[in-house]
């Protein structure tokens, strides 16, 4: 998995790629919580367009990020979910809990 951070309008986009599983979800968690809790970025976008797979440990990190953003009064926004990631969100009954957009254009306009 790779994580690349982009800054735009004072917000941060984290471009994730590859598989998010037990081996690398701690790295995603660290990057996500760093943006939300340490840098206090008002909007953090997770670009999941190039994520092929996510497991329950990755979902757990996203939930932790969501809780942290709510505590901070900031927003965590996901976009670009493929079929595999959407299935896991649905299985977890979390698709309505997160702010999810189709693509970057819609996410940034939200």
């Amino acid at each position: 998995m790779q994580i690349v951070a982009r800054a735009i309008n004072g917000w941060t986009i984290l471009d994730l790629s590859g598989d998010i599983d037990l081996a690398n979800s701690p790295a995603m968690r660290k990057a996500l919580l760093g943006e939300i809790k340490e840098k206090r970025t008002p909007k953090v976008f997770l670009n999941l367009k190039n994520v092929r797979y996510i497991d329950s440990s990755g979902i757990a990190s996203l939930v932790e990020g969501l809780k942290a953003s709510r505590d901070q009064g900031s927003r965590l926004i996901l976009y670009g979910l493929n079929k595999t990631v959407r299935e896991v969100m649905q299985l977890s009954r979390l698709q309505k809990i997160f702010e999810i957009y189709e693509d970057e254009e819609h996410a940034l306009a939200s």
Binding site: D55, I59, K67, R93
Partner: peptide, 18 residues
């Protein structure tokens, strides 16, 4: 329970659903 929004505890649920 899937009504709880908290990290963890999903793996077994995924297996049983699938």
């Amino acid at each position: 329970s899937l009504k709880e929004i908290r990290p963890g505890g999903l793996g077994l649920h995924f297996m049983r659903e699938s």
